[in-house]
Computed example of a mutant assay.
Amino acid sequence: MEFTQLIAQRYSCKNFGAGKVDAAALHTILEAGRLAPTAKNTQEQRIYVVQSEEGLAKIDTATPCRYGAPVCLVVAYDKNHTFTYPGERMNSGMEDAAIVATHLLLGAANAGVDSCWVNFFDPDKLAKALGLPENEEIVMLLDLGHAAEGAGPLPNHSSRKPLSETVTFL
C-alpha cells in the first residue's frame, strides 16, 4: 500500500477479534521499530512482547484499554542510556521511544495488523507487575491484533484541522 494511503486508513482499533498475530507479521513489526532513528543512535528502547495469558492479565490489571488484543507491546527506554540535550533539561528517552512506537504502529498497519496506541495506565504499577528493571521507563503500550467483525474507526477519525491552524511558516 502506498504510504499516504496507509497513514490515512490506519486507525486506533478498540475492538479486536479472536485471531492471532502470526510470527512473521510480528517480526516485521518489531523490525520496523528496530530501524527507527534515535538520538545519537543510542537505541535505548526496550520492547516487551506480551502475548501469554498470564502477561495479558497483568496488562489488564493496569488498563481497561487492551480491547481484547492478543498481543501487547510494552515500549520502554533505558533511563541510563539516553542522550542529554544542550541546556541539560531534556534527554532523548521519551521521544526516542515514541519514535520507535510510531514505527511499530506504522509497521503493523503495513503488515495488515490493527493496533491501538495506549497511554491510559499507571507506568509504575505496570512495570512492577511485569517485573521490569528499575532503570526502565514505560512510555506506552501498543495493542496488536485483527479488528473484530464490524469494528472501525471512531466517528471523528477523519476530522483534521487544516494545516493553516497547525503549521506556521517563519
Rank of each mutant, 00 (worst) to 15 (best):
F83N: 07
A111V: 03
G107P: 01
A18L: 11
K20D: 14
G33V: 08
I59H: 05
E95D: 13
K125D: 13
A109C: 05
D96P: 00
F169M: 01
L130Q: 09
S52P: 15
G145C: 10
Y48N: 12
L141F: 05
N91E: 13
T4P: 10
E136F: 11
A36Q: 00
A36Y: 02
A151S: 12
R10K: 10
H103C: 10
G152I: 07
N15K: 14
V50H: 03
V50K: 01
L35D: 04
D60I: 07
K58I: 06
F3C: 09
N41C: 00
N119E: 13
A129P: 10
A8H: 13
K14F: 07
A97T: 00
V50R: 03
L132P: 02
C65P: 02
K79E: 15
K79D: 15
A147R: 03
F83Q: 10
G107M: 08
H81A: 12
E31K: 11
H27G: 07
A36P: 01
E165C: 00
E2R: 05
G17S: 08
T38Y: 01
D78C: 07
D22M: 06
M140I: 10
P123N: 13
A32N: 06
E88L: 12
L105W: 00
R46E: 05
H157I: 08
A97H: 01
S164E: 04
T102V: 08
L73F: 02
A62I: 12
D78P: 13
G93R: 00
A18S: 15
V71K: 03
A98M: 03
L126D: 09
A111T: 03
V100K: 01
P153G: 09
H103A: 08
H146G: 09
P155T: 08
P153D: 06
S158F: 08
M94W: 11
T166F: 00
R160S: 07
C65I: 09
R66T: 09
L35M: 12
L126W: 07
A129F: 09
A127H: 07
A18K: 15
V75D: 05
E44S: 15
E137D: 08
G19E: 15
A98P: 01
D96M: 01
G152Y: 05
K125G: 08
N91K: 02
E134D: 15
A101C: 12
D22N: 14
E165R: 01
F120G: 04
V100P: 01
S12H: 01
A25E: 09
S52W: 10
